[in-house]
């Protein structure tokens, strides 16, 4: 991997040693998203897992969107 950026590498990678939060897969009707569980019946979308490109234009599942529900 090569980074081609004007930002110093130490700044880009600050906090890199922190472990990312574990993710779960949620199926929401036709599409599946990978999300991190943030507690309180909420999960934050990390990425969309779908082969239908329209799903990637869906505002409610953009990365960062919060999904409410009982996941367990």
């Amino acid at each position: 991997m090569l980074l081609y950026t004007v930002v110093p590498l130490e700044e880009v990678l600050e906090g890199f040693e922190q472990e990312p939060k574990p993710t779960i897969q949620l199926s929401l009707g036709a599409l599946t998203v990978e999300a991190e569980f943030i507690g309180g019946f909420q999960a934050r979308v990390v990425r969309v897992l779908s082969t239908d490109p329209r799903h990637f234009l869906e505002p409610s599942v953009q990365p960062g969107a919060i999904i409410h529900g009982r996941f367990f």
Partner: peptide
């Protein structure tokens, strides 16, 4: 691992847009 959320997402209409 597939898990089905039991409740519908997005409780209010304006909320998802605001989050985005």
């Amino acid at each position: 691992m597939f898990q089905q959320p039991q409740e519908e997402r997005a409780p209010t209409r304006g909320a998802p847009a605001l989050q985005t």
